[in-house]
Design a protein around this nucleic acid. Sequence first.
DNA 1: AAGTATGGTTTATCCAGATAGACCTAAGGG
DNA 2: CCCTTAGGTCTATCTGGATAAACCATACTT
Lengths: 119, 119
Amino acid sequence: MEKFKLYDAEYKFTSIIWDNEPINSTKLVRLCADKLGWKKSTTYTVLKKLCDRGILQNQDAVVTALVKREDVQKYESNTVVEKSFDGSLPKFLTAFLDERKITEKEAEELKKIIEEAVK
Amino acid sequence: MEKFKLYDAEYKFTSIIWDNEPINSTKLVRLCADKLGWKKSTTYTVLKKLCDRGILQNQDAVVTALVKREDVQKYESNTVVEKSFDGSLPKFLTAFLDERKITEKEAEELKKIIEEAVK
DNA sequence: AAGTATGGTTTATCCAGATAGACCTAAGGG
DNA sequence: CCCTTAGGTCTATCTGGATAAACCATACTT
């Protein structure tokens, strides 16, 4: 699943694409200049790298994503739980919610998500 | 909270200390050679850096942690949710639990943790 | 014909994380 | 006295992520 590993800059960049795909490459250059402060060549360099890795696609100046945001998110969530929490979701939740208060409504939403996962 | 940011190698290293503190520095060198394959100088270099950053402490050859594992975990969990999930815990949970099944008992444990956080 | 915008590649720089080699001092043992 | 061990610093190398400069070809505009 190393396919879904995105570094910080790559993630921000890919996010822009997810939000705007399909997007013309020149427009993407402008967007990145705007949102990330990148020069044209930077955008093309990163774009090419991600295309080579099979994460993005650039065909006839139209850029699209080959992997879904959800897949990367899934990878991210699993990675952090594994790496920092012994693979334990309860440990993760405990750490995240420590000193953090949520409303009844938010709690309901979370519980619903959990119940959906019960086999 | 940048204080709690640990890079991969630093995290593994600090984990060893959390598991063994207080620990004599020479023993730590041996442990790291064993578990991480590090040379003595590598251990001391990383140790010094983390001491400078106020994360560890090395006094009279006794190494201890100044920040708790829980604090780093809290930072990690918050960071990933912010960076990859718009700060939304439900989004995180959904991604994590996607295609993953949990038992009734695990669900109960999770719900309990959630209820504790309701203000 | 000259200028300009589009779409892109190749190569390079810079910096930081990861790792280690060389070297140093003080204390204790034979 | 020499040697070893403990405890540690300073400096260096290697690698990869982040960013960009320079350069190029094609097509459209004036």
